[in-house]
Design a protein around this nucleic acid. Structure first.
Length: 496
RNA sequence: GCUCCCUUCGUCUAUCGGUUAGGACGCAAGGUUUUCAACCUUGAAAGAGGGGUUCGACUCCCCUAGGGAGCGCCA
């Protein structure tokens, strides 16, 4: 029996640049990188590409962590285990110097203006706009003096570079289309192209999983690996996510930052599921838990084509997770949203706001907790749950919508008076106040009045919910509780 | 302009040379019903076009069309 050498443990990485928020496309890349490592017993590391000082603010970095924490769980990537690329600049520069010494890189004194001219000329002649290699084999003369220079890779010019991509398959680039890239800027700082290669190597990354806008960079980076004598990692280039109209997903399409989806009332589990399923499939499975994904994810079943983001489908996945979610967790999520977004004053009477909503949530915790099981069965998002619960936020006397008010004519008000009496008598204490008992009493009341059930239900609904639509009447009454329900009823009733 | 990638119902996808091309979302109709929802049932809906290869192509090859990405001292 031949002993197989232990397979090299898989190391993947997610390397976002802090641009202000975590885009769903990047979030999915994070997911796939993480899942691939998990499914293969490896690890996925986080590296923040913050070499562009102009764009990398602390706030932007916080937002990345916030987005990842919500989607993946706060413990997946602890901040103190994160690699910050900016901390490695000395190492990057040293590697560039090595390449200079070995003749795999050279100093280029071309000015930005020169390069501009070069590119424009190439474009007008129908050639690909590239560096023309004017300093490739030229030693700086005395006239260069202390002139600023960049360090460029002396890239191979003949032959082809082949990438065997896990998603895209075999991709070939002619070496002459892969430019002599800048490794070190004239201020001595590393470019992205150098930094990724050095950091990926130093971090022991075996599999680079990223968006397919980087596909050609794999070719370029492989040339750097080659020049350095390092083994290049394996690649998987994921197709991009498009908006519903097929164009690149942007703010114009609505929410694009993962954090935005939380504020729309999407559950983190649902977002995870939807994103995993967008571009990856496991037969006909639509509902894929975090655990299942971490067990069965692979790159073979990643789709090669770009996918469009479908908000409706996301909502339907969300609906599934909402139904299965823990009530207390949902109440906490409702509280988060009310605190963050406030409440629609139209639904709660004049002057309602986040403070009022929060106050009400705290004051009537039991009321809301008993309502959550009802709400989660009917609402697609947490935001909708809050809207459906509008009646539970308000205090007596509750505001009544115009349409509902119209229903509360004299006849109906006296009907409500009789109902108030009947209910109060029949269900004389809190223990008797159950949905079943409430239903039985109201039905027999309607019968006694010789009225169809709806004739009683609608005025009753108007009086306790303040509007024509609400969750099931018996649920509304039950969660409001005996005292509050009867009081609301009495507020609108007229005794004759 | 040049280089590279992609193309199954409206959308996400299954199929890995032989299927009545399956599922999900959405949509439509019906049912249930105290309102709005939810829920249940049923239905319509697809291999971009053209050439090959093959006994047989959605599946393999080529061309065309359409879409996307890249072409920075950004990442």
């Amino acid at each position: 029996m031949t002993q197989k050498p232990p397979a090299k443990p898989i190391v993947t990485r997610f390397a976002p640049s802090p641009t202000g928020y975590l885009h769903v496309g990047n979030a999915r890349t994070a997911l796939f990188s993480y899942l691939y490592a998990k499914a293969n017993g490896g690890v996925c590391k986080l590296r923040v590409e913050d070499t562009d000082k102009a764009r990398s603010t602390d706030d932007a970095i916080d937002k990345i962590f916030e987005g990842l924490g919500w989607l993946m769980g706060a413990d997946v990537w602890p901040r103190d285990e994160t690699v910050f690329q900016s901390k490695n600049v000395t190492r990057h520069a040293a590697v560039a110097q090595e390449m200079l010494d070995s003749g795999n890189a050279y100093k280029c004194f071309a000015t930005p203006e020169e390069l501009d001219k070069m590119r424009n000329a190439a474009r007008t002649e129908g050639r690909s706009p590239r560096y023309d290699g004017r300093w490739r084999d030229r030693a700086p003369g005395p006239e260069q003096g202390n002139a600023p220079f960049v360090v460029r890779l002396k890239a191979e010019q003949d032959g082809v570079t082949v990438i065997n991509d896990h998603v895209q398959g075999r991709v070939e680039f002619r070496n002459d289309v892969l430019d002599d890239l800048v490794l070190l800027r004239s201020d001595g700082t590393p470019t992205y192209m150098l930094a990724v290669v050095v950091d990926d190597h130093d971090m022991g990354v075996t599999h680079v999983i990223r968006g397919d806008d980087h596909l050609i960079n794999a070719g370029r980076q492989n040339q750097i690996y080659k020049a350095l004598g390092w083994d290049a990692p394996e690649y998987a280039h994921l197709p991009l996510i498009h908006g519903p109209d097929g164009a690149k997903l942007s703010k114009r399409h609505g929410a694009v930052a993962v954090a935005d989806f939380r504020d729309m009332g999407i559950l983190s589990d649902a977002m995870f599921n939807y994103l995993v399923r967008l571009g990856w499939s496991s037969g006909d499975e639509e509902i894929i838990s975090r655990k299942d994904a971490a067990r069965s994810f692979d790159l073979d079943r990643v789709n090669k084509a770009a996918a469009r983001f479908d908000y409706a489908k996301l909502e339907s996945v969300n609906r599934h997770y909402l139904k299965a979610a823990d009530d207390k967790m949902l109440l906490a999520e409702m509280t988060y949203l009310v605190g963050k977004l406030g409440l629609d004053p139209g639904s709660f009477g004049d002057g309602a706001n986040a403070d009022a909503g929060l106050k009400s949530l705290r004051a009537h915790e039991q009321r809301f907790l008993s309502l959550v099981p009802v709400l989660k069965e009917r609402s697609p998002t947490v935001l909708e749950m809050i809207k459906d619960a509008a009646f539970a936020f308000v205090d007596r006397p509750i505001p009544i919508e115009p349409k509902a008010l119209k229903l509360l004519n004299d006849d109906n008000r006296s009907l409500l008076g009789r109902l108030h009496e009947a209910l109060g008598d029949a269900l004389s204490n809190d223990a008797a106040w159950t949905t079943e008992a409430i239903e039985a009493q109201i039905r027999s009341f309607a019968e006694a009045e010789d009225l169809g059930f709806g004739k009683v239900a609608q005025p009753l609904r108007a009086s306790v919910a303040g509007r024509m639509q609400s969750p099931g009447l018996f649920d509304v009454l039950y969660c409001l509780g005996r005292a509050e329900s009867l009081a609301r009823l009495a507020d609108q009733a007229k005794s004759d």
